[in-house]
Design a protein around this nucleic acid. Structure first.
Lengths: 217, 217
DNA sequence: ATGCAGATCGGGAAATTTGCCCGAGGGAAT
DNA sequence: ATTCCCTCGGGCAAATTTCCCGATCTGCAT
């Protein structure tokens, strides 16, 4: 609550990879009106740091262990509806982008973008605007044209969770236990997922999950 | 071919994300005996840059489009068997680590490591030693205790072919047709593959296939 | 020659799972 | 209040998996 607003942009960096974070910090601090005031490597830490430092912009990688990135965004926005959060992700899946904005992010830049794009996006977000890198905009534009429901939109939350665990290699029994469901229910979800997405094979489901950023590798 | 060896360590940075690359560059150049002499964002470019600059160490992210990271390592090593390549990856899957070393890498550090670990690894590799971060070593140690025969060695040619098509998303009927086999035979192979590899789920088979380079994506 | 090992190909039968339909309960929206 | 959708599971025939088996064919050592 100092004179943060009057001069420069204060930034909270959230990424679970120390080296990566260190790298960003150096890139960002090269701009002399940027100040990285805190770092965090998980959702809970990010929330604490936000409360403690009230940064102008949060730059966050949402692919953190536990898929907690979206949670972190929601938590921060719940505390401060004016919080500016710029998501900085490896992927540019339409579903992920929409989920991020839906959770309250103000911007979305992929790690494939030029540093200048990230820097510009941070300035835009700090100004209260929305920002996204060119590739993200292109992906969103394309999929808004196609009537393809992104395959995942037609799935409920439970279905998505089960799809992810399926793709992760869990057996139906394990999933049933993880989620406190009967094996039968998991079987039914499995069937429904295949029916809704049009996939015939489990292998195709895995590929779909990977494409949608639900599973890695 | 200048006085590169006498003073400091010259480095070629390979990563397909410009921002990430920029970040590493700053982290590395903070060490005053490190010099990043070139960057590349794909396998072909990496090879060209290696030829042009003959760096002491190549720091490479192998998760690049086209799964070409291992190719790049092999190409570079084919040209210069003394090339020092340090892989810098998001993941620490045992299979990936072994593939990297098998292709000729001298080190493997995950992005989850502290910057100091990366820097130390670079020095080790430059000295001609092998290096890996603690988490990678742990993963390797654990799985070396298991008598896993690399999973694919125990599979016959036909089994591997069927595994690949399975992982590619083909149905058993399609595979049977492709290979002029009865559906029954394909089912039997499917069963045998699962039995031999110890995988319980089709999704696990897909992951195995991807890890072993049988399938991409 | 002979035998052994192993890869390839498929049949058979029991056990399990899938495919598909159905109903019930809860919550959100109208 | 009513409708809609998500969640959760039962039921049952059809399909698949699991595991066993035998038949070729090849290479390779005896």
């Amino acid at each position: 609550m100092t004179t943060a607003k009057t001069r420069g942009i204060s930034i909270l960096l959230v990424d679970d990879h120390p080296v990566v974070r260190q790298g960003y910090r150096r890139v960002l601090e090269h701009q002399d009106d940027f100040r990285v005031v805190a770092e965090a490597d998980n959702a809970a830490e990010a929330y604490r740091a936000f409360k403690a430092h009230a940064p102008n912009v949060v730059v966050m990688d949402i692919s953190m262990p536990g898929a907690s990135g979206l949670e972190a965004i929601r938590n921060i926005r719940a505390r401060d509806a004016d919080a500016r959060i710029l998501v900085f992700s490896m992927h540019s899946e339409a579903a992920q982008v929409k989920a991020a904005f839906g959770a309250g992010a103000s911007g979305f830049v992929t790690k494939g973008s030029e540093p200048a794009e990230l820097i510009q996006a941070i300035r835009s977000v700090a100004r209260g605007e929305h920002a996204m890198s060119g590739d993200v905009a292109r992906v969103l534009a394309l999929q808004s044209l196609a009537p393809t429901k992104s395959a995942l939109d037609q799935l409920g939350e439970r279905e998505i969770e089960i799809l992810r665990q399926l793709a992760a290699g869990s057996t139906k029994e394990q999933i049933a236990e993880n989620l406190n469901l009967s094996t039968k229910t998991v079987q039914n979800y499995h069937y429904l997922i295949k029916a809704k997405t049009g996939m015939r094979t489990d292998a195709q489901l895995v590929r779909l999950a990977v494409e949608c950023g639900l599973a890695n590798l």
